[in-house]
Amino acid sequence: MSDVPVCRLMSTRGAALLVTALTISGASGCALWGPEGGPGGAGLAAPTASAEAAVDAVLGPDGVQRVEVMAGDDLRLSPSVVRARPGVIEFRFRNIGMTPHDVRLTVTGAEDPANTAPGTGNLNGGQAQTVRVTVDRAGRYPFPCLYHVSSGMQGTLEVV
């Protein structure tokens, strides 16, 4: 985990008391008790970056829409929302951190026990992988990281 959690101090009296105590002992509240923070919510980690603006896939001369999506150690995809028109969409997934990921495009919508959905396969830190899908119906298609979807690592392809 490369990113350092950002501290947030709540302004309760308890927090003030505690922060005083911690300053005396020379420690910083956040690093001390981890992302879940101290008593009264002191030093609670920042929320995980929430959904950002959608990015449009760019239509190439060959009629393929392309977009690059970054996967980081913050276990988030960036951009997390990709917009495209029906047709062929090519994703370039780039792992910019150390943690491995495996991003799948669930364009069929159905459950996929046979593990046939198009995706990156295991993508170690520093690697990149191109995935092409064809979507002919408008809709929202999630692309989760198989490893980290419980922790919310998922993007959405919006076909409009």
């Binding site: 980690a45 920042a46 929320p47 995980t48």
Partner: peptide, 14 residues
């Protein structure tokens, strides 16, 4: 699949 992996908190929790 069963635990939270991030050093930050889920937005709803934060």
């Amino acid at each position: 699949r069963v635990h939270w992996m991030l050093q930050t908190l889920p937005p709803a929790v934060a």
